[in-house]
Design a protein around this nucleic acid. Structure first.
Length: 429
RNA sequence: UCCCCUGUAGCUCAAUUGGUAGAGCGAGCGGCUGUUAACCGCUAGGUUGCUGGUUCGAGUCCAGCCGGGGGAGCCA
């Protein structure tokens, strides 16, 4: 038994592959069967002389995506995309297929998304999902090696974290309404006071009526939080995390990046240090290029794209106006109208992949901000306890996995980075 | 919530000014010993998103509805 991704280890030997028929071409007395097994794709060559009349005839009528078990000798071949081919000696059908709906041809987005459960079998989607897996693993490995403890935060939450307009509501038995989490932020702060360096990693939900290539209603976010830490610590961490993740993808997913025709050069440029500019500098850059932005405004999508295009690696924009950020963001003690916040914008127009900063640790000011934001104080009593008992400076950020993967893969749309994307008008399959 | 685009065969798309709905791919059958979205031949495949209107005649023009895509705002 062998797997395609490590087929090179079996050169010259006969192996058995269990998989599915991805494509088939025939040329008289020879069939070319592209077989996939979940780990990769390989071309199996079946000649009538080698397998006999009966099996050859059967193979000639197999439908695309028929489950097959094949046996054959592994042979290096310069003509093969992966460098190896299989000379088939035996084949059996494990599961029949007739009229597989997705042809190896052009299809529209709607058609493919309706058949997402089958679309993920394609070479391109396979490559993307494998890279997603590698990215998630690299994130976890990096944080674990830096002494972070995984402490996941609840998905059912009793109240909003940053506002109430973008939350999904769920009936919670017959006595309450729960909200699906939009961030583990507040719980991460509590966990950091218990465990020092922590992170949460899970799905988050935003009921924003966004219909763009950067938005999903359900997406995955990793949120590290550190006690005894400042804004600069958070930026340093994000920088080394992103660098490590990109390096891992380059190192272990070269084949998949090649399938996606992703240029390695732009990923190889992702090295620390990242450029760091203040919000003020960013506004000047935008205004100098004629973009209509007022000082004090948050950036729009096109503004972020413009800023990111000025650099060959992610850019950290810090010290946003306090008014544009969440209530728990700490104002700069020397310039209270600016906050100790940071967004990291990915290159090539992929937008904000990281948002975070240093948290507001002054109890009185926090109480005032909660009132200013019209938030119910009683819902935040537990959070305020963190400022009452052993309060220390702390910082962290959230990083969106789908935007990160879309950028690393060079995709047009984040919907391809998750097995089953959830969007404004799409809830199935 | 707002703006723009779009809906014809299983898929991707044609169809001149309103005048007999076509092609390629896919599927089925056959041919071909090195194909890479192979190639060649044959066959089957249509309530032109839905409802109504104008007209001798509507895929085409008009109205409403439904579906899809992209963007703004908001965000990761």
């Amino acid at each position: 038994m062998a797997h395609i991704e490590e087929i090179a280890n079996h050169e010259g030997r006969s192996v058995t592959l269990r998989g599915w028929l991805h494509k088939r071409r025939s040329s008289g007395k020879i069939h070319f069967l592209t077989v996939r097994d979940g780990t990769g794709f390989i071309q199996a060559v079946m000649s009538k002389a080698a397998v006999g009349e009966e099996l050859f005839l059967q193979a000639g009528h197999l439908g695309q995506e028929t489950a097959i078990v094949i046996q054959g000798e592994v042979r290096a071949d310069a003509r093969a995309p992966g460098g190896y081919e299989l000379d088939v000696s035996e084949m059996s059908v494990a599961g029949e297929t007739r009229d597989y709906p997705i042809a190896p041809k052009e299809h529209g987005v709607d058609f493919l998304l309706d058949r997402r459960h089958l679309w993920i079998r394609s070479e391109r989607q396979h490559a993307i999902l494998r890279i997603r897996h590698t990215v998630i693993n690299a994130v976890r490995d990096f944080l674990n090696n830096q002494g972070f403890t995984l402490a996941d935060t609840p998905i059912f939450t009793p109240a909003a974290c940053e506002g109430t307009t973008t939350l999904f509501q769920v009936p919670y038995f017959d006595h309450a309404t729960a909200f699906l989490t939009q961030s583990g932020q507040l719980y991460n702060e509590a966990n950091a006071m218990a465990l020092g360096r922590v992170y949460s990693f899970g799905p988050t939900f935003r009921a924003e009526r966004s219909k763009t290539r950067r938005h999903l209603t359900e997406f995955w976010m990793v949120e590290p939080e550190m006690a005894y830490a400042t804004l600069d610590d958070a930026i340093d961490l994000a920088e080394s995390l992103i660098t490590a993740v990109v390096a891992r993808a380059l190192e272990t997913r070269g084949r998949e990046l090649e399938t996606l025709e992703r240029k390695r050069g732009s990923l190889e440029a992702i090295q620390a240090p990242f450029p760091r500019i203040t919000y003020d500098e960013a506004v000047h850059m935008l205004q100098n290029h004629g973009r209509p932005i007022e000082y004090g405004d948050d950036f729009g999508g096109p503004d972020e794209t413009f800023l990111a295009e000025q650099f060959d690696r992610p850019v950290a924009v810090h010290h946003y106006p306090t008014a544009t950020k969440a209530f728990y963001m700490k104002p700069d003690p020397e310039h209270p109208d600016l906050s100790l916040s940071v967004d990291i914008l990915a290159p090539e127009g992929y937008g904000e992949i990281v948002g975070g900063g240093q948290r507001l640790d002054d109890l009185d000011l926090l109480l005032r901000r909660i009132t200013e934001h019209d938030l119910p104080q009683e819902a935040f009593e537990w959070y305020l306890d963190l400022r009452r008992y052993g309060n220390v400076p702390h910082a962290g950020f959230g990083m969106g996995i789908e935007r990160l993967v879309a950028w690393i893969c060079g995709l047009e749309h984040v919907r391809e980075t998750i097995p089953y994307p959830r969007m404004l008008y799409r809830l199935t399959p």
